Amino acid sequence: MSEMLWSVVVPTYNRLPILQKCLAALEKQTITAPYEVLVIDDGSSDGTVEFLTTHHDRYPHLRLLTQDHAAAAAARNYGIDSALGKYIAFVDSDITVNPEYLQAHTETLSQGDKVYSYGRIINTTNLESPDSEPVPPIPIFTAAIFDTCNLAIARQWLLAAGKFDTGFFQYGWEDFELGMRIKQLGLKRLTCAGAIAFHYHAAFSIDKMPRLLDLEEQRGRMSIIFYQKHPTWEVKLMIQKTWLHLALWGILTLGGLLNDRTLKPLLSWLCDRGKSEVAMEIFRIYMNWYTVLWMYRNWERERKLLFD
């Protein structure tokens, strides 16, 4: 039997509809080398484990792992520890990839030893056919140093860096923090235009606003852990804890006068007319202001709760 080349690590929590799309796409890979797909169920209550157990014949590359709910960092570490492949690709369970995904990452990683490969991310609200989203002819890449939506790396470097820090117990920053340690090992990020991830987000609606703001609070709280581990100007820019960001988002929201209450009529009007993506981008401006202001107001109190 040939040595396993790839282990695709897919943590999931209550995302069965889009997870099925994710796994179907991973079964269509053009690569001829052996690969496995490790789904780590993080305590789902939506029937994910039962479905994958009874429909295993649909996904011959699948290896199912389960754990009690412990968040994405622990789930990814479980996948890393269990992986049989030389390389690991991280694919979130709301991601659908193109057929050339693993082959493209393989070719990129062959360019050196101390490198990792970062692919393209296309956002979509199309649950039925996420990979039908138009792909821009000119590749656009994020400045994110280590985004697990579409990233591939040799397993040895994840082990050398110490894997994900499970101290990040809420939403946000655990992948970027690992990226800082990967960077300290001297690895270089290479872009991989041929590996495309279609990232599904449910269309914005007014009822999602409280949940979105709760996630921003979680991200603000995890920013404290991130900065505690890496107290640098680079991290301050990442988490937006600077006077520049406070001023920028303050100006764009008129000092917070444009907020979840005052924007609601406009956002409702846009959603009613099928412009939910525009509504989301407008609300995102307030979300940035909300996060930055939350950090400035709660940083010391939360830091003491977390570390004192």
Score class of each variant (00 low, 15 high):
Met1Ile: 03
Met1Leu: 12
Ser2Asp: 14
Val8Leu: 03
Val9Ala: 01
Val10Lys: 02
Pro11Phe: 00
Thr12Gly: 00
Thr12Phe: 00
Ile18Thr: 00
Leu26Ser: 14
Pro34Ser: 09
Asp41Gly: 06
Asp42Ala: 06
Val49Ser: 09
His55Leu: 03
Asp57Lys: 08
Arg58Phe: 05
His61Ile: 01
Leu64Gln: 06
Thr66Asp: 05
Thr66Val: 09
Gln67Ser: 05
Gln67Phe: 02
Ala72Lys: 07
Ala83Phe: 14
Lys86Ser: 10
Lys86Arg: 14
Lys86Asp: 11
Phe90His: 04
Phe90Thr: 01
Ile95Cys: 04
Val97Lys: 03
Asn98Asp: 05
Tyr101Asn: 09
Leu102Arg: 11
Thr108Lys: 10
Ser129Arg: 13
Pro134Asp: 13
Pro137Arg: 12
Pro139Ser: 09
Phe141Asn: 10
Thr142Lys: 14
Phe146Asn: 14
Thr148Gln: 09
Thr148Ile: 14
Cys149Arg: 12
Ile153Arg: 06
Ala154Pro: 02
Leu158Gly: 09
Ala160Asn: 07
Tyr171Trp: 15
Leu190Asp: 10
Cys192Val: 06
Cys192Ile: 08
Ala197Phe: 02
Tyr200Ser: 05
Tyr200Cys: 04
Ala202Thr: 09
Phe204Cys: 06
Leu212Gln: 12
Glu217Trp: 02
Tyr227His: 15
Leu237Lys: 10
Met238Asp: 03
Leu246Asn: 00
Leu248Met: 00
Leu254Lys: 08
Leu257Pro: 05
Leu258Lys: 14
Asp260Gln: 15
Trp269Leu: 15
Gly274Ser: 08
Ser276Met: 02
Glu281Cys: 05
Ile285Tyr: 04
Met287Ile: 05
Asn288Pro: 02
Trp289Tyr: 15
Tyr290Ser: 02
Val292Arg: 03
Met295Asn: 05
Arg297Phe: 03
Trp299Tyr: 13
Arg301Ser: 10
Arg301Cys: 03
Glu302Gly: 01
Asp308Cys: 11
Asp308Trp: 12
